[in-house]
Write a protein that binds this DNA or RNA. Sequence first.
RNA 1: GCUCAGGUGGCGGAAUUGGUAGACGCGCUAGACUAAGGAUCUAGUGCCGAAAGGCGUGGGGGUUCGAGUCCCCCCUUGAGCACCA
Length: 857
Amino acid sequence: MAEEELIYDFSTIEKRWQEYWEREKIFRAEDDSEKPKYYALDMFPYPSGAGLHIGHPEGYVASDILARYKKACGFNVLHPMGWDAFGLPAEQYAIKTGTHPSVTTMENIDNFRRQIKNIGFAIDWDREINTTDPEYYQWTQWIFLKLFQRGLAYVDEKPVWWCPNLRAVLANEEVVDGKSEVGNHPVERRNLRQVVLRITAYAEKLLAGLDDLDWPDSTKRQQKAWIGRSEGAEVEFAIEGINEKLKVYTTRPDTLFGATYMVVAPEHPLLDNLVIQEKANEVKAYVEAAAKKSDLDRTDLAKDKSGVFTGSFCVNPVNGEKIPVWVADYVLISYGTGAIMAVPAHDERDHEFAEKFGIEIKRVIANPNGDETESKLPYSGPGVMVNSGEYDGMDADACKSKIITDLEAKDAGKGAVNYKLRDWIFSRQRYWGEPIPLVWVSAEDYEIAKQTEGAIKDLIPQNDVTTQKDGQLLYALPLPASELPLQLPEVENYQPSGTGESPLATISDWLEIWFDLETGKSISRDEAKPEGTTWVSASRETNTMPQWAGSCWYHLRYIDPKNPENLVDKEKEAYWGGPDFYIGGAEHAVLHLLYARFWHRFLYDEGVLANPEPYRKLFHQGLILGEDGNKMSKSVGNVVNPDVVIDAYGADSLRLFEMFLGPLEAVKPWSEKGIEGVHRFLRKVHRECLRTDKHNAKEESNKDTLKVLHESILKVTEAIEDLRFNVAISQMMILINHLQKVDSYSIDTAKALLQLLAPFAPHLAEELWGNLGGQPSIVNEPWPQARKELLVTEEITIVFQVNGKLRGQGQFPKEVEKDAVISAAKADTKVQSFLEGKEIVKEIYVPGKLVNLAVKG
RNA sequence: GCUCAGGUGGCGGAAUUGGUAGACGCGCUAGACUAAGGAUCUAGUGCCGAAAGGCGUGGGGGUUCGAGUCCCCCCUUGAGCACCA
């Protein structure tokens, strides 16, 4: 064989097979297959202008290995790809340059697609989706309208996070430590009209549904914490001198006797009633100061407690004691009832406050460990009730429900559940997002709509959705499905208006319309008003949806990406179910993954879907750091470009190395030397498989080779199933090292190696498969089965220990008796030197493994 | 501050779940081939020690014939939460 033929020309090989796979549609997923299905899903990328970075392929390679492996195991595999393409960068680029975001987006998608195809994934490209395609987003809008119809979307003018730099409103989840998650700009509170989704209605379902999911624990915990369910009681305190009750929420009704003051939040609606004349100025000043504080100041910085006495008193419903009412900003208006009963003896925050303002601290739970000194307060552990009247001596925890029952009997409270989860602010004041398909009409026209038979009437929610505009109350009407998609209009200027309205608000011929209350059809108000009594003047909603919307349901559209009639065909959805494997970054633990569960569960409740949960098995790949151990970033200059890596080593080397770096979930640094290592391995495979002089026969006869081969089949298979791809690759290296050492091996052995390698380095495996006489494609070959009987050898090695330390070993037939092994161990010269002058007190024999002689003296 | 997950050679990491610690790869050392080697191959490579041997999985204790693995305390790194009553 000539030298040249041994060169591993990965560029040619990879190009050849990528073209072949695409041309032959090797990875097409069948909707009507008899085979069991396997659906491997990647979190689809945002196609940024920077192109693919080295982190993207990590998850994609992992899912691709599973997809190819499962295909070999006889599954009908769906491994799709698409683009989460609405978003701020394209819009900001448009603001800067005037280029339409769709132009930038398409360019970026073309680049991403090219880069992804260069890595040779087993993707069914016929199912590619794009969230900015009207054919796609009409269904995003359709789901929104369903939510609207069921009263799960409403409009509210409420304080929201406004980012002046981004000129946009952000969701709670998009604000981290008082800064925008994107760009790290400062944010502030502003009252703005917002479209809000009632995700809180799903709090319980979203919490309960977590239990059955095969997700990383940390992610489940984060979602649990975000939903933040707590159980306790709502207790009503009479206010002296006012005919109002102050309602508080507490998780510790058992500490009710220890309540020595109350606190209302500065924004509490009863505050004005509570403040007595002499305190009015002081309280007013405090409330104004609190309003000026950003949330950053209120929560993140100095936790120094502040507050002002209102001059009013409440009456404790359990013992009639008078309790002073304070106002303090450590109580949040947005949680519970915005007011608390403070129990300084058993709550850290209340304790700090009481110490500072000299308020009584009254212990009502005794520490069972006996330490009753005041210095041990606050105490929040379990214990026995004290200073609590009739409840004294009872176990505090058990007492909670008893006190709740007693309060209910007195009509002074009830058991209650609270969640930290807030409703989802769904509107964005941006251009580059899905238009929200609502129109605003007058009260009179709204009444007509409710009585007009047609496309709209039944879509109107039970509770009216209204907003104030220029002193007029307007009512929201939905567009019927027949009017979808509601497409984005062309605009001159992508800049949001500084008042917090989207640029769509400036497109008057799109905004101001004639609207038919019967059919939902509309035309611009620039045109003449059509004939007919049901045509009225209306204006469109100008907000667009957040980027999360499109990714809430994309896993469904891959199942049936071109269906013009439905979001997804029911039969196809029943066949494919949800993804069997979902991989993406851990940064989406509470954002995308919670929103998508919400929408999916809603669609399930609506009877649209057969499964309540979208992602049964979830995995987060770990970050790949730069070679210097720091996060890759342009400014540090440690970014690795996948295009450059592919040019230098090939896609197979890139794939293999990303998996060989370490455990899939671990954060791990890139290494240029490391990729040379796996590249060397692939070259070895290439060279060995082409050495026809070594392939002596079709079937393998060498016992050692058979053993190593089948051990490898077993270990690689197990490692793939366990997502431990680094271990699988190690085992293949062991196999090739063995084949390199032996004089000859069979073609079957070489082919089995290629099959194991195929999910990891598919191009090279496909190429060599052909060279060894296999028919393309190796992708369709059944996965090799390990013959475990070949792993058992006639002779076994048993190690000898003295006091647990290795001192020798011996070869024995596999059926050897215990006594024979122990005698051999004692006879071992080295073992003997450690037994000398000592007494054997115990002889341990682990069959087939080891002997341990415990000695003393 | 609270909660969780980790700490194994010079480096990335293996270890049948209580039974030979350090597989595999990188790096390093020596040698072979060579005009040359940043290619390839061979041998070696946890630490100390000439060897015998000793010591070794963040530190300290414990359980056990036997501990990287189980228990307790501490140190440390990372992630999440951060006035949620």
